[in-house]
Simulated assay, not measured.
Amino acid sequence: MQEMTERLGSDAAGLARAAEILRAGKLVAFPTETVYGLGGDARNGTAVAAIFAAKGRPHFNPLIVHVADLAMAEAVAEFTPRARDLARAFWPGPLTLVLPLKPGSGIADLVTAGLDTVALRLPAHPLARALLTTFGGPLAAPSANPSGKVSPTEADHVMEGLSGRIAAVLDGGACPVGVESTILSLDPPTLLRPGGLPVEALEEALGAPLESGGDAQKPNAPGQLSSHYAPGAAVRLEATEKRPGEVFIGFGPGGPEADLSLSASGDLVAAAAALFATLRLADRLATVLKAPTIAVAPIPEKGLGRAINDRLHRAAAPRG
């Protein structure tokens, strides 16, 4: 049975209503600086199960827990000195740390997919932080879209995918970063997912290159499934020409005439912010034109380009 999805404003009344809904064990989508998250009380197993049900998400895929401050994070996970240094350097912001789960934390088992670690993030978006503070506890929050589909960077995107499946959306406008958080595990420092915090910044802080990790079959953090962020049309990458029957997404000056562009000037920050909205527009255009494929121009593998390419490769992966 579908429920009416409320659209809440970003004022005090909207925050109070969102917190009330969350305390009742229901789900509220809310903006972060990266994408909109689908929030539920991380200590309420029924609420967490509802997240998986609303998204159609596999239960073996763990969730990120969002916290209001470092004290709330330390009540959930065990912090080493290095983890605390990284948190102080990059929180609030688009960094998720995978750390040992603290005994007695109260985090529902479904959040961690039965693992002894938990993925934690302190978001920078003021509305997300206000909601976490008003609610007064940790929120499990994957991206607020059907599993495997393009992530939402506006409240309208959330409504397109989840209206009738969740209780409310807290509308905070467009998300400024536009790709999900970078995920890092420690001991040794291992990149599990590139994201909104460039890898170069982490490597500079750590004083060493990062290892790469993650298993699409047995993920220990979100965003590791091989097919993810997928539009309806097929996706062709590293495209240097537009073929018949394609919608072409360009990047930077020059190249073939583009139907859409991630950034005409070649700005990776702007491209990251525009990525998911552009994929959605391209998919709609492909439907109208009856084009079976979306082609995407090459993106430099540096800075936020690593996160953009990660999402594009998952969008282009064979679908199960």
Score class of each variant (00 low, 15 high):
T32Q: 04
M159T: 04
T293W: 13
L275E: 13
G148Y: 09
D69A: 01
A68R: 10
P198D: 07
L115E: 01
A315L: 01
L184N: 04
G40Q: 10
H228Y: 15
R314K: 15
P62S: 10
T134S: 14
G40P: 08
L101D: 05
T153N: 00
H228R: 13
G45S: 15
R193W: 12
F276A: 05
Q224E: 02
D171N: 15
K102A: 13
G172V: 04
P58W: 07
G93C: 09
A54S: 08
E301M: 09
W91L: 11
S227T: 08
R43K: 15
G40Y: 10
A50I: 13
A19Q: 02
D109K: 13
A216C: 02
G173K: 02
R236K: 10
P256M: 12
G114S: 11
N44H: 09
G114Q: 08
T182R: 10
V288E: 15
A113D: 04
A274P: 03
P138I: 08
S263V: 13
T46W: 09
N61L: 09
S261Q: 06
E33N: 11
G9A: 05
A113N: 03
T287G: 14
A272W: 02
P126V: 12
L206M: 03
R84N: 01
I107P: 03
R243T: 03
H125D: 15
T153V: 00
G40M: 10
S226Y: 06
R129Q: 09
L281A: 15
R243E: 13
G161L: 07
L63E: 09
L225D: 05
A270W: 03
H59R: 14
G56K: 02
G136C: 05
A317D: 04
E241M: 09
P100K: 01
T278Q: 12
L210G: 01
A119Y: 07
S105L: 06
P103C: 13
L275M: 12
A282D: 03
L86P: 11
D11S: 01
K55C: 07
L192D: 10
P103G: 11
E200S: 14
T46A: 15
L95M: 08
D187A: 15
A208Q: 14
S147M: 09
P152R: 05
V288F: 07
P222G: 00
A282H: 03
S261L: 05
G45N: 07
S226W: 09
P103S: 09
A315P: 01
G178K: 13
A119M: 07
A119I: 08
R280V: 03
E200C: 11
F276T: 00
L304H: 04
A168F: 12
K102T: 06
L22F: 10
V48E: 02
S143K: 08
N220L: 15
R82M: 15
I166V: 14
E200N: 12
L225T: 09
P222W: 00
L38S: 01
